[in-house]
Design a protein around this nucleic acid. Structure first.
Lengths: 331, 331
DNA sequence: ATCATTTCCGCAAACATTTGCGGAGATTTT
DNA sequence: AAAATCTCCGCAAATGTTTGCGGAAATGAT
């Protein structure tokens, strides 16, 4: 009972050939019911499990997906990963999860690891200055499906799954307008990211269409702390904003730090709206009103698309997850 | 350039044997510098990467660790995972991450998956009613190191890495006593978990030692919502507590929902102390004072221990990560 | 020139599995 | 009774590596 069982050991016990045992276990029609039964019984007894590496070597399939994100430890990605893991398992796939830390070099290294491990497909949310889009196209051409999600390269003909960034941002703008706010402090993320550009553009477009009705101060913040400072500065200024918009949880955290510290009443003194998956907004009181972007839902869509590609690689498709307003009491 | 390069293809190009190429690439002393150079150059040109499955089949090593947690999407575990991933990579290991969802059956299935994929080692935080401790001992005996972390089975002779649960809880109790609180609402987690038992025991021991000085109402809550309700009930009662203690982030979230809703001033009306990794406490104002339990640090210790075991399996060791008080302004 | 080293490399087995092909033996058809 | 068909199974090659062993050629010692 020391070493794991193999086809060979089973075949020796039963005086059969290895191939017969192999076929018996997979119900090949060539094998009689009688021997099938015997083989299966012994296999169960010996706790036989096929050696995944031998199978993969032979079939060139690994039943493993690679998943590359900037960071696992993140509100959004962990729910995405969670969803993908659960769904993947249902179809017999496992996940190899790598972190790029927003570093293009690490990202490239991770991709190499994926290739080395012969993953059957790749999910990736790319780093800001990714070097890997060409490499990824190559993978795709060589039959390894690649699904970009959340942060996708700018101009690319590939399978992408994103939040409805424009829609979410313009929904945010419309909501703010609806509440007749006068002066909004709008906080956006890293200015280099396409997700930031898209959201900012869409937001400002809507505001512009209603020209003059509202004053907007726009800030791009790289992290929570910059958002905290930007908010503090705005609150200290002569005509201080009556509303803060945050395009992400991270920025919301930063902004809230300043607002709570200042002892402002929400939404009387200042109102707030964020784009979020809902976890962070629910921690405050009143709960923050937000435009929902669910990592969980995105994950389910991503794995679904991946499985479609496993059948046969089809023309790339850009999937967009619609967003909706979830009312808290912050506006 | 279509198919990936193999030792065979390189050897044919150079009129060498496969074995020579293999040895040349790993700097075997038997091979002359001259041929080593030639082989390496061609290998680089052809973008040769060893086929991981062939290597694993031959060597019976996979360079992959299995990691099983109740849920990836969790304040604590995601930072643990993050740390392990980063450190593992430095030594050429990758991670296969599985979620048990606190379901013993799923957990067992995940372990099977680990075995199937011939992982070189397993990190696991067990589900409440785990069925797998025997199985895991078997793995260990057969040479696969198993490292239990955070939630470890009760009585087990194995490598375990935990927070200093008793220490953290008694530190919490001492802190509360120091501030001369009169009536504390103490919220603990799932009563079936050993981590809950340990923390509760230690907490109450300290309180008992200072008998009579303080009144304590103890509640075990399975989730944030139960904590919210328990807190609401306590606040509505005649002699309401002047302090709330939460043994986890989840409970803190629940308790805070009620406290914020009630519009209580912290720490004037009610003071708060939690055991946490610090992220959630930092979201409130004033920031919540907490006893730190860092998933990140725990992860670093876990991988370190794993690597020690990779050299040679040594006697099991119970490692405990000390905790410290981080002052917010909530007490 | 002979023997002993050293240097460098190839043969072949082994890892566990899958699969095309072929071939006994039994059964059915003409 | 010979031929055709069907059942059931084994042979052997192939996947890409690693590694023990042995062996040819070159060098050094006598």
């Amino acid at each position: 009972m020391g070493q794991p069982a193999t086809l060979k050991k089973i075949s020796e016990q039963l005086n059969l050939s290895i191939s017969t045992v192999s076929r018996a276990l997979k119900n090949h029609p060539d094998i009689s019911e009688n021997t099938k039964r015997k083989v299966k019984e012994l296999a169960a007894l010996m706790e036989y499990e096929p050696n995944a590496y031998a199978v993969n070597l032979r079939t060139n399939k690994s039943k493993v997906f690679g998943l590359i994100v900037p960071a696992i430890s993140n509100m959004f990605y962990d729910s995405f990963i969670s969803a993908v893991e659960v769904e993947a398992r249902k179809f017999g796939y496992s996940l190899m999860i790598l972190q790029s830390g927003d570093d293009p070099l690490l990202e490239a290294e991770n991709l190499k690891l994926c290739k080395l491990n012969r993953v059957d497909g790749i999910f990736i949310s790319v780093a800001p200055d990714t070097l890997s889009t060409q490499l990824l196209s190559k993978y795709r051409e060589s039959g390894i499906p690649v699904i970009f999600f959340d942060k996708v390269p700018d101009a690319i003909n590939a399978d992408t799954i994103c939040m409805a960034d424009e829609e979410a941002a313009s929904l945010a703008a419309h909501t703010i307008l609806k509440y007749k706010k006068k002066h909004v402090l709008a906080l956006f993320g890293n200015a280099d990211l396409s997700i930031t550009k898209k959201r900012k553009q869409a937001f400002l477009n809507v505001i512009a269409q209603h020209g003059g009705k509202i004053k907007t101060s726009v800030h791009c913040c790289k992290n929570a702390d910059e958002a905290r400072l930007a908010t503090a500065e705005a609150l200290a200024s002569r005509n201080r904003p009556d509303h803060v918009f945050c395009m992400s949880d991270e920025l919301l955290i930063g902004a809230m730090k300043t607002i709570l510290r200042a002892g402002l009443q929400i939404p009387q003194d200042i109102s707030i709206l964020a784009i979020s998956n809902g976890f962070i907004p629910g921690l405050f009181y009143p709960e923050i009103t937000y435009i929902e972007t669910s990592g969980f839902e995105l994950g389910k869509l991503a794995i679904k698309r991946m499985l479609e590609n496993m059948e046969s690689i089809t023309a790339p498709k850009a999937i967009i997850l619609p967003s909706r307003l979830v009312e808290g009491g912050s506006i």
